[in-house]
Structures are given as structure tokens and as C-alpha cells.
Design a protein around this nucleic acid. Sequence first.
DNA 1: CGCTTATATCTAGTACACTAGATATATTTC
DNA 2: GAAATATATCTAGTGTACTAGATATAAGCG
Lengths: 147, 147
Amino acid sequence: MPKSAGRTLPDVDKQLSFALYGAANRLVRMHKPFLDALGLTFPQYLVMLELLGSGPRSVGELGTKLGMDTGTITPLVKRLEQGGFVSRRRDAKDERRVLVDLTSSGEAMRERIRVVPDRIKTACQIPDDRADELRDVLNGIGRSDDD
Amino acid sequence: MPKSAGRTLPDVDKQLSFALYGAANRLVRMHKPFLDALGLTFPQYLVMLELLGSGPRSVGELGTKLGMDTGTITPLVKRLEQGGFVSRRRDAKDERRVLVDLTSSGEAMRERIRVVPDRIKTACQIPDDRADELRDVLNGIGRSDDD
DNA sequence: CGCTTATATCTAGTACACTAGATATATTTC
DNA sequence: GAAATATATCTAGTGTACTAGATATAAGCG
């Protein structure tokens, strides 16, 4: 067996980075049946949550909030637009910006979207206080002490 | 209790799923400078860790271990092969299987790969015991009580 | 032996997520 | 007010990650 001279490599599934990467993938998979029923992908669902919670947002603001590049957000939002869930228009105040807003069809999803987090929480079987604690730890990972 | 007027959508960044998704993305970004120097992407790095730690593996075994589909693993491994890090050959014992093994060039990366987890741990600033605890919680997420 | 079923891998098509570079509008400076 | 700079978005290209369907080998059965 290639156990190499003295130093062994830490087993891949002993590593936090692997655990985190896998958990995120599994979490997206868990969402899929619920989101398929709504015609949304996971990142699209995050954008919808933000719009439902905070109102119209520019492409750049969505990227900042969700920690994604505009090169990711633009095609994602275009698919939401094609699905009829959001509208895109130039900001009259600053024509460089594109404002993304819910259509009536998107707004109408509010109640159906709202139940998704609860279903996931149930499936995860993690108590609320434990989940909050975990969330805070995760939110601290990989941030360069600003934002 | 007012029926729906009072119920607001939970803020997107109060949610575990969002925190987990974002943390995984940030973690991959943290790895990038180290892995770029080795000519690896993050999932390719996970495959290399597994091969360095456990020896030759079939495509299917890699997929099971890493929680990924063969439709993901196959092109990924082909890129590793193109990079000269691994070889692929049919298993003589069962010609349905494709065995992935390290080349000498791949084996030679052992020491350079081994230091990556430490650098990340330092950058994350999470104490070891805390990281182990977090890892165990993450490993429990989204598994259907088998595997 | 030929037929069926199971297993393992591969191919094709959609959707992220990133980087780098192009385009378009705003703002500043002279 | 025209040129230079800054900001916001978009486009193109690479690499995951998924699903569904195709191919190829293996194993079981009449």
C-alpha cells in the first residue's frame, strides 16, 4: 500500500473542507424536490428570498448580498426573468444599474417559498439553537474580517 | 394571530442553508491560490487526496467517497489525466470498471498537497477541537441514514 | 448457448461560479 | 463641454454538478 515513508496524508473525510463542500452539495440536493415544484434552482431560490424580503435590488447588490459575482448573477436573473418571476429594468436614477424586481407571479410565490426552510429544517433534524450556532460559525468562515 | 399579514419571510442571511452554501463557496475561493500553484481545482484536489491516501480507486468508488455522480467524476478525472497526475485503465478483474491511479508526477505532489489543509486551517482561524465538532455536524447533514 | 438483468462508465444537455475583457453610463477634471 | 477616470453590467470561456439516456461488460437463467 502506498502508505509513504513516515508522514501520512490526513484522510480526506477527516477534513473540514471536504465535510463543508459535501454538506453544501447534499443540502442543495435536499432542496431540489421542493424547488423543482416551484420551477427554481437553489441559487435562484436565494435571489427570490432576498427580493421577497427586501424589495427591488440591483444586480450588484444581489451579488454582494449572496457573495456571488455579477458574471454569475446576470444569467441567473435572466433565467428568472424568462420564467416570469422577475423583471429587469435600468435604474432611472443611475442608468448604469439594472434593477431586479418581482413580477406579480414572483410575488405570488411568497407563501409557497416560505414553507421551504421549515421542510428542510425538519429533514435535517437539527434543533433550532444548534442550527443558529452552526450558522454563525459558518458565516465566519472565509470572510476577510471586513463585511 | 393574524393570518398572513404578520408573517414575514425569514431574512435570507438568517438561514442555515444560505450560510452553508456561502461558506462552501468561500472555502473553495480560499483554496484557489494554493491549488492554482499546483494546477488543481478544488474537486480535483479532493480526488488527489483520496488517491494519495488510499491508493488506486475506480471511478465509482471515487464518486461514492466524494458524494459525486460519475457524470461529474469522469470529466474531472480526464482533466487530471490530461494534466499528467493520474492514469486510467480498465480493471483486468472486471472490465466494466476503470481504475484511476497516480502517476509518478501525481505521487510527487504528496508533500506539496499535504501542507494545504494546514494553510487553510490557519486562514480560517478555527481551533482544532472546534473544527472537528463542526465537521461532525456537517457530515450528518443530508445523509439518508445509510452511508 | 443465447437472453435477460444488473453493474459500471460514458455522453449530452442545463445551470451554476469563476476570471478576464468588452461595453455603456457617470463622474471628475481641465 | 470634451477627455480621462470610475462604476455597473455584460460576454466569453473553463470547470464543476446534475439528470437522462446510451454503451459495454458481467452474471444468472431457460
